[in-house]
Amino acid sequence: MPSPETLAQLGVIGFTFFMLLNSAAVLVYMERKVAAFVQQRYGPYLVGPRGLLQPLADIIKLMFKEELRPKAADPLLFYAAPILSAIAAFAAFSVVPFGADTDFFGLLDRKIPLAPADVNVGLLVIFAVTSMGVYGIVLAGWSSNSKYSLLGGLRSSAQMISYEISYGLSFATVIMLAGSLSLGDIVDQQAGTWFGFLPKWYLFLQPVGFLIFLIAGVAETNRAPFDFPEAEQELVAGYHTEYSSMSFALFFLAEYVNMVTVSAVATDLFLGGWHGPWLPEYLGWIWFLAKVGFLLFFYIWMRWTLPRYRYDQLMEFGWKWLLPIAVINLLVTAFAVAWWGF
């Protein structure tokens, strides 16, 4: 019989997985409602009260659609690609803590972190798994054996690997400030306030880093305004043109879970994670949810407000502007940490 801590940890893992799946459903609803209000219309309101059961209807519809595969598509790779995307999306969340270490009000002997796993090299694990997410898209584009898919897949993966560098450099600055790669440690460094009211978030120490992280994160998840590779008007639907039914749902799921992961990591790194005023430590996850929710709202708001970047503008921005700014930010932070001991 494994120890109660192991069982509790397994419970946390299962709970996180379950909540990520639910979050994708919630995001489907949120996206459609926010888009509707931005465009001055109602959005879904028929299914369930205020349209709340719309995601359920969407999922049932997707399950009943026919699963098509083009004849010339490579069957193994065609079905493996969405699975790979979804795996990478979920695995990236496995080192993100969403609450303080807890012993469930004394039920356990020692505290366990509220994360599926809180490893010492957590931040690098997120980076590694995000790099693996590129493969789902590349394989989808290639195995569909169709020109729209191939172009969309290549462009999308080139975009993702270009913005990965700025992504990594922006959290290198946080690592320098915090002195640790473990996300739990980084959040703990952000507890407390300065002068009694300004929380000690790294957002205030690293505003440029936060901006770079968000921009690179949006580009990594292929969301607007960087969603040229899957834009309907340009490329039919890019790398998921040939997919239908549950494979398409898996890509959709992977995209939303990636959004949640980027928001959650940004919250942990820059917005102080689960620390916040007025609530006791063990209710910190409420603050976490609020911050992640705000960042997700920001994501959706950006999509329906900003026009799309053209592909060459997007690549030029990533290499010629974002990367030098990220490097300069890193240098300035390094000086500040070395000379003033932040």
């Binding site: 090299v121 690098l124 980076f127 590694a128 798994v129 790099s131 693996m132 590129v134 690997i161």
Partner: peptide, 11 residues
Amino acid sequence: AVIQIIIYAGA
């Protein structure tokens, strides 16, 4: 282990 994934498998 992690840089193996980042550099080899990822790049």
